[in-house]
Design a protein around this nucleic acid. Structure first.
Lengths: 160, 160
DNA sequence: TGACAATCGTTCAAATATGTAATCATTATT
DNA sequence: AATAATGATTACATATTTGAACGATTGTCA
């Protein structure tokens, strides 16, 4: 009678949690492919966004929110600084920490990034009507909030 | 007027695509933490599910669907075989390929896995009413289908 | 004030993971 | 029968990631 099959499907493979993981990986990969045209990886794009939202943060806190160990953050920020997208300044109040800021070029690239993000959003949700799109976003936002996720922060990699 | 802020939020950080990526990573990580109690990683759980769905497939096809190169699949299957969860049998029709099957213990562990999956589903969607839960699942399923995702297959890692 | 612990950024070496190419057995092609 | 192609495996070379250690600076407390 196929009840067995139905139960299995709904439990692990067809449930919302699995679909979230599957679609999340798909959306992340598609986004990565798009921003590769700007020579950016998702964590790099994340840093630019974080600096636009709250400039002048220390590397340690940024690394924490990005979910990477400080030792890995150093070469990560190095490349972005070499490319002239971000800037390290000495914090006058605490001279051992570096405050990070977007450069002018960084702000420009962020504008490009937003265009790409909008196109990505449209593409991923192409199956839905405008109403449904709004509906989905609202549901997801509530789930994210209840799960304790920080808005706008994508913890790509976990660590110690 | 805050319109600027609003636009930025909706474009990249608050859109459905970003929420999908964020929630997907969160759900995947939470699931990984749960099945760690069974000494399983997400790819390992995926293989068990795939073998339950269609037994006797060749390693190459399984590796393909799992998104890993065949060379990496070998030690991956080795461990599961050592632990007595899966079994390699010579395919009589084509003796160079190995057909993979679940052992009895593998079937038992899969039952445990389903319980964990159900608990995970409940936890992730705790913010939603039963109706909303159904609604979300339906929306996600349509998006997944339109994006061309294979049902029940989570391409954890991409490769060549 | 001065000694000591804690923090930030950084570097470095070791462990780990990952992909590519070569290898062996078997099967398909001609 | 000779040759090409395929599946599983191995070997190796390379990249990634981690954890500890270090110098510089700041906080704490006697």
């Amino acid at each position: 009678m196929g009840t067995n099959e139905e139960a299995e499907r709904s439990a692990t493979q067809g449930g919302a949690a699995f679909l979230l993981a599957q679609l999340g990986a798909h959306a992340a990969r598609a986004f990565a492919a798009r921003i590769a045209a700007l020579d950016l990886t998702p964590p790099q794009a994340g840093l630019l966004r974080m600096l636009a939202a709250t400039p002048g943060r220390s590397q340690r806190r940024l690394a924490e929110d990005l979910g990477m160990p400080p030792s890995r953050f150093v070469p990560f920020a190095d490349e972005l600084e070499t490319r002239g997208l971000i800037e390290r300044r000495k914090n006058p109040d605490d001279r051992r920490s570096h405050a990070l800021y977007l450069t002018e070029r960084g702000v420009e690239l962020l504008a490009e990034l937003r265009k790409v993000g909008a196109a990505h959003e449209r593409d991923v949700c192409a199956a839905l009507s405008p109403d449904e799109h709004t509906q989905l976003t609202a549901l997801l936002r509530r789930v994210a909030e209840q799960q304790g996720l920080t808005p706008g922060v994508h913890p790509g990699y976990r660590s110690s």
